[in-house]
Design a binder for these strands. Sequence first.
DNA 1: GCCAACGTTGGC
DNA 2: GCCAACGTTGGC
Length: 144
Amino acid sequence: MSSRSYWLVKSEPDAFSWDQQVANGIEPWTGVRNHMAKANLKAMKTGDRAFFYHSNIGKEIVGVVEVAREAYPDPTVQPDDPKGDWVCVDMKALMPLKTPVTLATIKADPTLAEIALVRMSRLSVMPIAPEHWKALCKLGGIKA
DNA sequence: GCCAACGTTGGC
DNA sequence: GCCAACGTTGGC
């Protein structure tokens, strides 16, 4: 049995892509400036897994990352950023999806249409229920 | 390029 | 403290 939690994180591939994540191996996940997303980052534990989603370009889940370091102060905070104790985590590239799972595919599946990715389209860090994780892994052609 | 959703800001 | 205006995100 596993007590690990599951997440989904979004990135615009123009800014930071899956290929870069793979090339870098472990990479800080910075730049989150939304309180709900921050709360999700803080809830992550080492060994938790997250889908890596490309927003805007692709609009698909392309890979799986693992939390390599739990929340710590985000070094990229700027003086004009919104006020708050912003944090980041370190993510480690784990594996690509054999078949990327597109937003259209997720929306077309009645059991997946309820996930936060669809319901709260602007949230950049969100939890994924274990059963949804399993279903998405299956769609992606990888083992959960 | 447009629009919807949502967070933030500022006037009152 | 309310609410309209505005900016940003992200899908289409």
